[in-house]
């Protein structure tokens, strides 16, 4: 996929590029509004990451620009402001998602995949990983055609890991993915272990391989062995 990263903080820009490139994406970078306009004038992208607070312009105007030209790129706003009004305004102007800083790169990656999938006209409505098939519409998981009953949180977690397959996902990122921002539960890291254990058991019971790996006690990786 071709992704344009519009972000003025070099440290963050570089990390995002590093993570997304390792997933096999092509990344372009823009640190200013002017650069972003230039890039958009030259190329088409699959997805655009847009920081709203740019040094030389308001990110929301870029959304207006894309809308005027009927561009079909998926846009994810990344902003330090967790404001509902801004979120609503951004989505109204055609953004597809809104991610508040700080975020985990695995979360960003999962969001990009979801946006691109939603955007593409003949988008696949299911994801396959070896013998596991995840139906995104029915929110069902099938192993070798057999239905596996997962709770909502387990389903979300499995999808999250599959979207970031081959990458280590920290417990911190997994907790935030499941419990979101509102819950003030920094001490809930250990419950991820229980969830992973349950998913693992349900999948292997259904005849799938065990693809979860614990990494240094920091997190887990979902990958082919």
């Amino acid at each position: 996929m071709k992704i344009l990263i519009i972000e003025d903080e070099p440290g963050l820009q570089q990390s995002i590029v590093q993570y997304l490139m390792s997933e096999g994406n092509q990344c372009s970078m823009a640190s200013t509004y002017a650069q972003a306009l230039e890039r958009l004038g030259l190329y088409d992208y699959d997805c655009i990451l847009l920081d709203l607070g740019l040094p030389d312009g308001e990110g929301l105007q870029l959304l207006n620009y894309l809308k005027r030209l009927n561009r079909t790129e998926g846009v994810i706003i990344i902003s330090a402001r967790n404001s509902i009004d801004q979120k609503i305004e951004g989505l109204r102007l055609g953004a597809d998602d809104y991610l508040t800083k700080p975020f985990h790169l695995s979360e960003l990656n999962a969001r990009i995949l979801a946006v691109v999938r939603r955007k593409s006209a003949h988008g696949e409505r299911h994801i396959e990983f070896k013998e596991i098939r995840i139906d995104l519409d029915a929110k069902e998981v099938l192993v070798k055609g057999k239905l596996v009953y997962l709770t909502k949180k387990e389903f979300d977690l499995l999808l999250y890991f599959v979207a970031n397959k081959g990458k280590v996902i920290s417990k911190s990122a997994a907790v935030e993915h499941i419990w979101g921002d509102d819950s003030d539960m920094a001490d809930s890291f250990d419950f991820i272990y229980t969830h992973i254990k349950n998913i693992r058991k349900k999948l292997t019971d259904a005849g799938s391989g065990d693809y979860f790996q614990s990494v240094y006690g920091v997190g887990y990786k979902f990958m082919e062995i």
């Binding site: 440290g11 963050l12 590093q18 993570y19 330090a80 508040t100 700080p102 790169l105 920290s170 920091v218």
Partner: peptide, 19 residues
Amino acid sequence: HEMMTPLAVINSKLDNMLQ
């Protein structure tokens, strides 16, 4: 708000380091 961006940098660096 100003602290959120450096926090985002730290977080993303940690995520990469983990790989």
